[in-house]
Design a protein around this nucleic acid. Structure first.
Lengths: 205, 205
DNA sequence: ATCTGTAGGTTAATCGCGTTAACCAGCTGC
DNA sequence: GCAGCTGGTTAACGCGATTAACCTACAGAT
């Protein structure tokens, strides 16, 4: 019987493909082994555990994801960059829901975890894009978090089938991007300062 | 030996408390049984399966959540209502991360699933709040989805420890709310029509 | 009070899945 | 042509969900 010639990489890639098909929470070692034409324990020669597999998929996913966003933003600025980056994100999440879920579930295991640079590259791309809006440095981080929140929230809700009402999800997405773009442009000069804490922000500066 | 006098409700409530402590994915029938001073199989006299338990927790969570948001918005309008509702949501998610995760993971099993009205009440509260901004009806649904996306994204990222940078998460949240408020007020009269991009349909009304 | 039926608990057994142990066959380098 | 690691296989273990078989505390009728 010839050997299957698996490697950690090929196992991870097959796992990534499978997780996109059946969903993050439905993956199992048995299913993946079957897909690879091998018995379950064989996988343990390449990954140490199911958790390890999930983590490798997460790293793969976040690296791909970072690339996708970087490429989309390349050569664009301002509104264009925002729209392109956001669309790239949404496309990625819709095409690879399982990978993306794995990427979100993963926590860096330490400072030398390859997940860390991948995540940093994602943040760096968004930050670069935001720089085009010339925000106050203090606000930039708030804007970055808002952007992540909005895009992540939209993508995951959509992937989970959370938008039930019969209005075009595409339209909603472009509307949101447009909304964010307008707001960011408005924030460029004017101080959209958060007034301290408690339950209520009064407006103004 | 006296009996434990469990009910589906008491089991669900204990499960909800436990899931907030140990996390959505870490719950197990054994742990919950131990917490209730009972052997594992006893739980099956009150809930039919672990999935059933999770679903009941989800219903409980979304009902509480809907109440919290309704109460927060009560008697307020516009910016105040937005800020109060958003803060109520964030507080709920932070205090009950497991419940909230259960609520999000759950899918209505059918039209008479009690999860449906609970979710509808949540949407209704946000919609009522948005009405204060007097948006174009077409835009209202987009705004609703954006709001859900932003708040859900922020809350879940925060609960998952996703905001690593050392800037106040509180400040970021109020900044975001403020940003959304400004944008919504701007959208009140002016047509914030989505300008067509590559992937998407042209806007207009 | 007693008797009885059943809801609500218990212990024992099953099953699936992750994981490990023990074993064995190809391929690589001498 | 053979020694030995590498990558597979089968068998076995452990644990968590679930089910079966059993048993008893309590409610209601007599």
């Amino acid at each position: 019987m010839p050997r299957a010639r698996l490697t950690p990489q090929s196992v991870t890639e097959a796992g990534a493909a499978l997780i996109d098909e059946i969903g993050f929470e439905n993956i199992s070692m048995g299913l993946l082994a079957e897909r690879l034409g091998v018995k379950t324990p064989a996988l343990y020669k390449h990954v140490t555990s199911q958790a390890d597999l999930a983590h490798r998929i997460a790293v793969l996913a976040m690296a791909e994801f970072a690339d996708a966003i970087r490429d989309a933003i390349q050569g664009r600025a301002g509104s264009d960059a925002l729209a392109a980056g956001a669309q790239a994100m949404r496309t990625y999440v819709n095409e690879h829901p399982g990978r993306y879920a794995a990427g979100n579930a993963a926590r860096p295991s330490g400072p030398d975890d390859p997940l860390v640079p991948a995540l940093e590259r994602v943040v760096a791309s968004w930050a670069a894009m935001l720089r085009g809006y010339r925000l106050d440095p203090v606000q930039e981080i708030h804007a970055l978090r808002m952007l992540r929140s909005a895009l992540h929230g939209f993508s995951t809700l959509e992937a989970a089938g959370g938008f039930q009402m019969d209005a075009s999800v595409d339209d909603s997405f472009t509307w949101m991007i447009n909304f964010l773009d307008h707001g960011l442009r408005a924030a460029t000069s004017s101080a959209l300062a958060p007034t301290s804490t408690a339950t209520s922000p009064a407006g103004g500066h």
